[in-house]
Design a binder for these strands. Structure first.
Lengths: 211, 211
DNA sequence: GGATGTGAATGCATTCACAGCA
DNA sequence: TGCTGTGAATGCATTCACATCC
């Protein structure tokens, strides 16, 4: 869709979402400008880190003043691609998939859940948050018609790899994976995996060895 | 509770959970031993990475043979502290909190959700998955009595910082945070934040700039 | 022969520190 | 003076490559 951006450190891109979140908060309280050090304080980062991160994407700040909040919000949304609304789908409507289907936090961030799929005949036809759960048979046609590029997977670990293949084969380009399984995908497909139980293990480790 | 472990890279600890997940899978198919390279292939990591990670915690492997699956599982669980069951609580029973309360994936990984809390009087008293939702007033007493050290927060972003303070003040040591807010906590408290919308932004970014 | 464990080398990301601009 | 943008220096993590052991 566009030029390759020159190599930007992955952690910097990750933090971009955090900057945006804080900037949106500042904007809500009518703050006009913010310095790298106050933005850093809000997130537990150094001022240098904030400046370097933002500088990867251009020169936004004004020396002596700081960054203009509204301008930065707009610019970061452009960079992340969330200035336009992106259609998305959910596969797997167990507890977590169901919660995500009802989650109100996607819309304001620029994502629109347009379709739900599940393999279980019991669930197909049920309506969640205004959307009907469809059979996997309808996946290809829906993705094509609604131009969906992003998919959220909340399926059992045992079928995760197969479902991911299916999503990719019908044209999905980015997958948010809640299943406890590692997906190996082609280079041009992006996956972010969130394993809730694994995160709990990390807490357990730190808490165990911290006294 | 124990000695400080010598400095182990955070990413290595993160991967430990992934190794455990794959090893549990191998064990379920009765695989006896596994080499660093096959374990790496399963996760998209190099063999050297796997060996270095595991070596941080001791010498588990046998040259010419590999790692014994069952022994490694046991050892990693000890390291993560999930060989014993850890009690945990959930605060905030909106869509996501509710899903987590019903999630069956915690128990087999060594976590036991023992209590649910919410500030909303509408929700207090309702029963979810066998547990009653309690008022925040009962937090301190419950945490004390049930020896809870781990908390899952699924509250609105606007109150997340306050709720975190409250959890910490009653003795919670590790927090899994689903709220879109960054918590600043004392050094001896561990936080892992999962912001679902932010993860979607990451997908959006990568997909946008990948053609 | 086949696989581990590990110093040494490389590659990234963060931090420093300062020139330059408002 | 206050704060940005950025090369240079530092600090970590990953990868290499090989001695070592079953």
């Amino acid at each position: 869709m566009n030029d390759h951006r020159p190599d930007i450190p992955t952690p910097a891109v990750r933090r971009l979402s955090l900057y945006l979140r804080e900037l949106e908060g500042l904007s809500a309280q009518n703050t006009q400008t913010v310095s790298s050090s106050t933005l850093g304080d809000l997130l537990g980062l150094t001022d240098a880190q904030v400046r370097k991160d933002l500088a990867y994407f251009g020169q936004f700040g004004r020396p002596g003043v700081g960054y203009q909040v509204s301008e930065m919000i707009e610019k970061i949304r452009q960079i992340l691609g969330t200035d336009k609304v992106s259609p998305a789908l959910i596969v797997g409507l167990g507890n977590i998939g169901m919660a995500l289907a009802m989650f109100e936090g996607f819309r304001p961030k620029g994502f629109d859940i347009l379709a739900l799929f599940d393999a279980d005949p019991e669930k197909i036809g049920r309506v969640v948050n205004g959307l009907t759960i469809h059979s996997m048979d309808e996946l290809a046609e829906t993705v094509e018609r609604k131009q969906i590029k992003l998919g959220i997977m909340a399926v059992p670990g045992s079928v995760a790899k197969d479902v991911a293949k299916e999503l990719i084969s019908v044209g999905i380009r980015g997958i948010l994976n809640f299943a406890p399984a590692s997906l190996d995908v082609p280079d041009d497909i992006t996956v972010r995996s969130l394993d809730v139980a694994a995160e709990m293990e990390q807490l357990s480790f730190k808490v165990q060895w911290s006294d």
